[in-house]
Write a protein that binds this DNA or RNA. Structure first.
Length: 346
DNA sequence: AAACCGGGGGA
DNA sequence: TCCCCAGGTTT
């Protein structure tokens, strides 16, 4: 334990830290909710979702008794939808196994769906003041630069090394404030690009700063190239209803809904075979599709949206749902399709 | 250990 | 364009 380091850090934090809603509570439920939402998500992007979820589910009982579809609908647009499915499972798990209260115990927290090392440490420290160090992207970067860590942060050995380092630096008497401060200085000062070393209280002892190698840290492993995929979506409608289907495969957007889809292996400017339900009543296919490129972190999606007008939407089959156009907003869709609906005025 | 899983914003 | 974000689960 390095009390001097932590003392300086926390002093900086008390003066410069942001006031955020989840920092002004000790309720484990609210802290947990914020941590799940903020996984791989910027504060400004997650903030409205945090408010929205708390309005709909002030207590964990209400979240647990909600439908997964309702949760996915509220999560729409935030990405990494397994977080939403795990959120629901975790709420039920806490009710069943822990009587509705998050346990003040790292290993028990760690056993809850969607809670890994970081989130378990965050809840343990923020809600219960237990001395577990949080190591998120901000902390990796700050420690990596300050100590000149040459081990990749995304390797198993790297994670272990940074965890041990963060534990040594922690003042166990001030776990919550120390952890908030570690992340905050990484976020506000020790930024990925052009960090504010001039105003950093630790620059005079920072390895990367002293050797003018700030941009060399943190060291990371290789990144995988993104794959291209080609989607043709069909809005089959009689002006009143259309067809949608839930994605259940082990693939992107699991649990969300989408339009009838034909996926091709290469770019094509004309529609492939129409979906089954569009082949009746002399379908009128739009001459030109609406094209959209949608970038995920690991995939590049090229989508064509074809509008198919038919006389009447017959009852669905093959797992499709027939829904009113005016009810589309009650289902959770990927952002790619939400954007298309908006362009169509739906 | 490596692959997979979204969407947005800043430089 | 590329990088990164209050990471976790699956293979």
């Amino acid at each position: 334990m390095d009390q001097e380091f932590s003392k300086n850090l926390r002093q900086w934090y008390r003066k410069n830290g942001r006031k955020l809603p989840w920092r002004s509570t000790k309720e484990a439920y609210k802290i947990w909710l914020s941590e799940i939402i903020l996984q791989q998500t910027r504060v400004n992007q997650g903030l409205p979702y945090y408010e929205k979820f708390l309005e709909n589910f002030p207590f964990i009982e209400q979240l647990a008794s909600a439908s997964e579809d309702q949760i996915l609908r509220l999560w729409q647009g935030l990405g990494y939808y397994s977080r939403a499915r795990n959120l629901h499972a975790a709420a039920k798990q806490v009710l069943r196994d822990f009587n509705g209260e998050f346990p003040p115990d790292f290993e028990k927290l760690r056993s809850i769906k969607g809670i890994g090392d970081y989130t378990a440490s965050a809840i343990a420290s923020f809600a219960f003041d237990l001395p577990h160090p949080v190591v998120d992207g901000n902390v990796y970067r700050f420690l990596s630069r300050f100590f000149g860590m040459d081990i990749p942060i995304d390797s198993s050995q790297g994670k272990k090394a940074f965890n041990e380092l963060a534990l040594e630096l922690m003042d166990a008497q001030h776990a919550a404030e120390h952890n908030q401060a570690m992340m905050e200085i990484g976020s506000l000062v020790c930024k990925p690009i052009s960090p504010n070393c001039d105003e950093c209280p630790f620059s005079m002892a920072c390895h990367a700063y002293l050797y003018n190698k700030v941009s060399d840290y943190p060291v990371k492993g290789k990144k995988q190239p993104s794959k291209k995929r080609y989607f043709h979506y069909f809005l089959v409608t009689d002006g009143i209803s259309t067809y949608i289907k839930r994605r259940n495969e082990k693939d992107i957007w699991q649990g969300l809904f989408e339009l009838p889809l034909v996926e091709l292996f290469e770019l094509s400017d004309f529609p492939p075979a129409l979906p089954e339900m569009a082949k009746i009543h002399q379908p009128t296919v739009s001459k030109q599709p609406i094209k959209r490129k949608h970038i995920l972190s690991h995939q590049e999606l090229h989508a064509c949206f074809w509008k198919v007008n038919i006389v009447k939407c017959l009852p669905p089959k093959d797992g499709f749902l027939r829904v009113k156009l005016s009810d589309l907003s009650t289902f959770g869709f990927p952002q790619l399709i939400v954007n298309y609906f908006e362009q169509e005025g739906l």
